[in-house]
Structure formats: structure tokens, C-alpha cells
């Protein structure tokens, strides 16, 4: 990224580097959200449907953890994955996998808390009907998740937004290694520290554009889905 270059030149000249940064950002955030959803949706549904001692503590904790400071999550994952930490033998610090794990932890409370709320509201409506149909608990959860899919998609977007916008954890556990763990946000942080504010701003505009495009796409999918499924 030599002098005079700006983000738009980088895009339109098809500079491979920018593409790889964008691709890595999307890859990490999408994987993190998928991982968090895989665990978070069933957990949210479980919290919504079950009653056990300590449940409200868990619910409040998840609600509070939606605002978990990224740097703290980053630090915890960093200490876990460091060679001197308990999971050091995995050898994945400063790799995209470490970034995915950290972001997934960051996103998980959002998915759990919001999906619990969605599923609990839906359960209120569906409970008698599903019980009258003699539907078992596992199938209840699956049915509620599926029928709540449009609201849950918004939950996924909220998670994706948090993951893709975040810089604190990925710079700590990813190391911002050029061509390997550099994402949009860490690239913006780096260009800012180099004093190349126009390039940093340009990258910021690119990031916002991508996030907008993804949300627009999701909105379109939701509209079509709702038209088709009611």
C-alpha cells in the first residue's frame, strides 16, 4: 500500500490484497456466527422452554454478556491459547481459528439471549397447540426454531454485526499478521496508526458497504421467505 494509493484504487485495480482481507474478514465472522448459532440456538431454546433452579441467573448473565467487552474476551482467549496457557498445545494462537473462537464467544451471548426471548414469546403462543398435538420436547424446540426463523435471522445479523465490526479481540488473538490474520478492522487500525487516514477511512467505507450489502441481502431473503411462508 504505497503512497497515493487509496481504498478505491485498491478495489478497482482489483488488488488481490484487499480482496484477501475482505475474504478473511467475512470468513472469520461468518464462521464465528455459524459456530455461535450452532451452540446458541439450541441453548437459547432450552433456556426458553425449561424451568430449573438458577435459570434466571443464567438468563440475566446472558443478557448482560451481550455487552461483553471484546478486549476482555480477547484477553481470556489469548491467555487460554497462548503456548503457556492451558490450550497452548493446540498451537492456534495468531491464526484465523483463534479469531473465530474469540468472536464466537463474543457473539454467543447475543445469540442465546435474543433467541431465548424470541423462542419464549413463540412458545407462549404455541404451547397448547403443540401439546395438544402430542409433540415431544425435542421436536417442540425444532419447530419453534424453524417457525421463529425470520426473527432468528435478525439475531444472526446482530451477531454478525458485532463480529465484523469488532477489532479488540481479533487484534489480540490474531496478531494482525499481514496476509494471514489481517481483517478489515485491524487493517483500519493499522492504517490509522500509520497516519494514512484517507486509506483508513476508505477501508472503513468498504467495510460499511459490505455490512450494508449483507444486511440488504438478508432483508430480501426475509421478505421473500415471509411472502412464501406467511
Amino acid at each position: 500500500m504505497s503512497e497515493g494509493a487509496n481504498a478505491f484504487d485498491l478495489i478497482f485495480s482489483g488488488e488481490a490484497k484487499l480482496y484477501s482481507i475482505v475474504a478473511l474478514s467475512l470468513y472469520v465472522s461468518v464462521c464465528a456466527v455459524a459456530l455461535a448459532a450452532f451452540v446458541g440456538f439450541p441453548l437459547g431454546a432450552f433456556l426458553a422452554l425449561s424451568r430449573f433452579p438458577g435459570r434466571s441467573v443464567l438468563v440475566v448473565t446472558m443478557n448482560a454478556f451481550m455487552g461483553l467487552p471484546p478486549v476482555v474476551v480477547g484477553l481470556v482467549v489469548f491467555l487460554l491459547l497462548s503456548r503457556s496457557g492451558p490450550l497452548g498445545h493446540w498451537g492456534i494462537l495468531f491464526t484465523p481459528r483463534a479469531m473465530i473462537i474469540a468472536q464466537a464467544l463474543l457473539v454467543l451471548p447475543i445469540i442465546v439471549a435474543l433467541s431465548r426471548q424470541t423462542i419464549e414469546d413463540l412458545w407462549e403462543e404455541y404451547r397448547d397447540e403443540l401439546n395438544a398435538m402430542r409433540v415431544g420436547p425435542v421436536r417442540c424446540v425444532v419447530t419453534l426454531l424453524w417457525d421463529g426463523r425470520f426473527s432468528l435471522m435478525t439475531t444472526l445479523l446482530a451477531g454478525f454485526g458485532r463480529a465484523s465490526a469488532e477489532v479488540g479481540t481479533v487484534i489480540l488473538v490474531g496478531g494482525n499478521i499481514d496476509g494471514f490474520t489481517r481483517t478489515m478492522t485491524t487493517a483500519i487500525a493499522l492504517e490509522t496508526s500509520k497516519g494514512d487516514l484517507p486509506l483508513a477511512m476508505g477501508l472503513g467505507v468498504v467495510l460499511i458497504t459490505i455490512v450494508l450489502a449483507i444486511n440488504a441481502m438478508a432483508w430480501g431473503v426475509r421478505r421473500v421467505g415471509e411472502l412464501r411462508a406467511g
Partner: peptide
């Protein structure tokens, strides 16, 4: 009862066809 069925005053339609 396993062979009981019910229709509510305002039945819940599942979000599908």
C-alpha cells in the same frame, strides 16, 4: 390420552403451507 385431538378457538397455524 394418546388418541385425543383438539381444535382451539384461534388455532395456531405453523409458519408453512
Amino acid at each position: 390420552g394418546e388418541r385425543c385431538a383438539m381444535v382451539f378457538q384461534r388455532p395456531v397455524m405453523l409458519r408453512r403451507t
